[in-house]
Write a protein that binds this DNA or RNA. Structure first.
Lengths: 89, 89
DNA sequence: TCAATACATCGAAATATTTCGATGTATTAT
DNA sequence: ATAATACATCGAAATATTTCGATGTATTGA
């Protein structure tokens, strides 16, 4: 268990906009950045900022092909977090 | 699933000091506030602040008897968080 | 090549968080 | 009653985060 990994992931999803982005990507399976503006009414630079935090924390997987970024959930990280909290219960 | 509950709990453990407090309480089973100062080298008001955030988020259970506060992990919340991330994986 | 699209980055403003010293309050021991 | 202990609260300073408009970069279509 690496506490800094947990803290960073927790920080990533502690913002309501970032959590909403995560949940939407889970729901849809995948997402490009442009989709997020309709979900959150955030400006494009703000979306870019939040996505970067989620990606840097390992919560989302970033895959740029051409000029679009496909975002998907990092299921391994979700499993890791689930197991972490399981261990605390 | 209430996103605000998740966001608040995630925020509570996103700080390295608060995560360290949580892990120490898990390890020891219980903890009074005074114990935390030796763990983190934080000032007493800072500890009080961080503990309040953890308690308000439902991560820790607060039980004051006399002048000491016993802190324990809220295992129900840990289970809830585990299940939440399980659902995202 | 030129224009449009999809994001990224920058600098600055607004806001929130963390931390402290000082002080307050309730409880316990003497 | 007095003093000590265990926390809580307050106001302020330092720092971090969020957000924006402006601009930059890479890619695609006409």
């Amino acid at each position: 268990m690496d506490a800094s990994v947990i803290a960073k992931a927790a920080n990533a999803i502690s913002d309501r906009h970032r959590l909403a982005i995560l949940l939407e990507i889970v729901r849809k399976g995948t997402c490009v950045c442009a989709d997020i503006s309709q979900l959150t009414r955030l400006s494009q630079p703000a979306i870019s900022h939040h996505v970067k935090i989620l990606v840097d924390a390992g919560v989302l997987i970033y895959d740029k092909t051409g000029r679009t970024v496909q975002l998907t959930v990092n299921r391994e990280m979700m499993k890791y977090l689930s197991a972490f909290f399981q261990g605390l219960s």
